[in-house]
Amino acid sequence: MDDTIEPPFQETYPTLFDNISEKEGDESWLRMDDVEYCELPLVDLSLLSSNSEHLDKCIKEMAEAASEWGFFQVVNHGIPQKVLKNMRYEQNKLFHQPFSKKAEESFMNFSANSYRWGNPSATSLRQFSWSEAFHIPLTDISRLDECSRTRSSVGLSATKAGSLAERLAEYLAHNLGVKSSYFRENCLPSSSYLRMNRYPPCPLSFEVYGLIPHTDSDFLTVLYQDQVGGLQLRKDGRWLSVRPNPQVLIINIGDLFQALSNGVYKSIEHRVVAQSEVERYSAGYFYCPSDEAVIESLSKPAVYRKFSFDEYRQQVQKDVRATGDKVGLSRFLL
Rank of each mutant, 00 (worst) to 15 (best):
R195N: 11
S46A: 00
Y287N: 13
P98L: 08
S28E: 07
F183G: 13
D325I: 04
F17R: 13
P213C: 02
Y115T: 05
A173S: 13
M1G: 06
L84Q: 06
W117K: 03
Q73M: 14
R238P: 10
V154C: 02
I20L: 04
L211T: 06
I268P: 13
N197Y: 09
V74D: 04
N245M: 05
D2H: 01
L223Y: 08
V43C: 02
N51K: 12
M1W: 10
D44P: 03
K93M: 00
Y37R: 11
Q232S: 06
D218L: 11
V320C: 04
G78S: 05
E269H: 12
Y285A: 14
K82T: 07
I295Q: 15
Y265I: 00
L176G: 07
D2V: 01
N252I: 08
S52W: 12
Y287M: 15
I250S: 11
D291S: 10
F219T: 12
S157D: 08
D34A: 04
Q10K: 06
K179H: 14
G70D: 14
L188I: 06
F72G: 14
Y13E: 01
M62D: 09
P98S: 02
Q97N: 05
L333P: 07
V222K: 12
R151H: 05
E68S: 05
Y115A: 03
F72C: 15
Q275I: 00
S163R: 02
V43T: 00
R234F: 12
K326S: 10
Y209A: 10
D216I: 13
F17M: 08
Y13V: 01
E27M: 01
M196D: 10
S261T: 12
I251G: 03
T215L: 08
H96F: 13
L48M: 13
S190Y: 03
F286W: 10
I212L: 09
D236F: 09
K300F: 12
G230E: 05
L260R: 12
Y304S: 00
F99W: 08
S50Q: 08
I141Q: 01
L55P: 06
Q127W: 05
I141R: 00
Y37H: 12
S282K: 00
E292I: 08
G284Y: 15
S299R: 07
S180R: 15
N113Q: 05
L55Q: 03
D56Y: 07
S111G: 08
N186F: 11
Y312P: 09
S67R: 02
Y285D: 09
V320A: 04
S152H: 08
G284C: 14
W130C: 03
E185L: 03
D3N: 09
R88H: 08
D2F: 00
F95C: 00
E39P: 11
A103D: 02
C202A: 03
L144H: 13
S46N: 01
K160Q: 09
D140L: 13
E279C: 02
L144C: 13
C288S: 11
D255K: 08
L164S: 09
G254K: 15
L211F: 13
L211I: 07
C202M: 07
L334E: 07
S49F: 10
Q315M: 13
N186P: 04
F72V: 14
R88W: 15
Y285Q: 14
L231D: 06
D218S: 05
R280C: 00
V272A: 04
L30T: 01
Q247V: 02
S181R: 11
F206R: 01
S192R: 00
V178N: 15
P246I: 05
L223A: 02
S267F: 04
K82Y: 08
S191T: 09
T123H: 04
E296D: 13
S142P: 04
